[in-house]
């Protein structure tokens, strides 16, 4: 069924709750959040690419800034053994995630990787000097929100993709858009 007639809803303790995403305020707000979240990520990535080229140097962050955090064993291993991967994936990933969210293309896939990235930032930046609910967690939650509401189907390319015959015949695509 066409996305722009869909409703996100749930049954909460026996009461049906519905969020109308058919051009109403719910859909408008989801699209607004997607645009701003996308620009936030795109800006973070593209500025790294413009400043440092395809590869950034994240080894300092991976080795030292994350020290004492739960992700340090992972980031430290990558810093010492395969630094090229995060050095390439952070700027490229941020740029592509942001682009995907801004235009609403493969939004769930983009937001999944955005969530993955934000988990490292949230846990790795640590210190939690500003409390456990901080900007990184808010960014993480926004990414999850994009996945939950399939945000690209509202005023995004995914809305068109979901209507294609290919998507109709390949239900797995709904996990990506």
């Amino acid at each position: 069924m066409a996305t722009n007639t869909e409703r996100a809803g749930a049954d909460l303790f026996g009461r049906g709750l519905a969020l109308d995403v058919n051009g109403g305020w719910g859909g408008y707000w989801i699209a607004m959040l997607r645009l701003l979240t996308g620009y936030w990520m795109f800006h973070a990535g593209i500025t790294k690419l413009m400043e440092g080229g395809l590869m950034m140097d994240a080894t300092g962050w991976m080795q030292y800034a994350t020290q004492g955090t739960l992700v340090h064993p992972i980031t430290n291993w990558f810093a010492q053994n395969a630094a090229w991967l995060p050095n390439l994936m952070i700027p490229m990933g941020e740029t592509l995630i942001g682009l995907g969210l801004m235009v609403g293309c493969l939004t769930r896939l983009a937001a999944f990787f955005g969530t993955f990235l934000m988990v490292f930032f949230y846990v790795g930046n640590a210190g939690f000097g500003h409390g456990f609910v901080n900007g990184d967690l808010m960014g993480l939650m926004l990414m999850v929100t994009m996945v939950v509401f399939a945000a690209g189907r509202v005023l995004g390319i995914d809305g068109w993709l979901a209507d294609t015959e290919f998507a109709e015949n390949n239900a797995w695509l709904r996990y990506l858009i």
């Binding site: 996100a8 809803g9 709750l17 995403v21 939950v148 189907r153």
Partner: peptide
């Protein structure tokens, strides 16, 4: 008011 009608999940 709050719409309780046939809510369903986004597929």
């Amino acid at each position: 008011g709050i719409d309780r009608a046939d809510a369903r999940q986004v597929r």
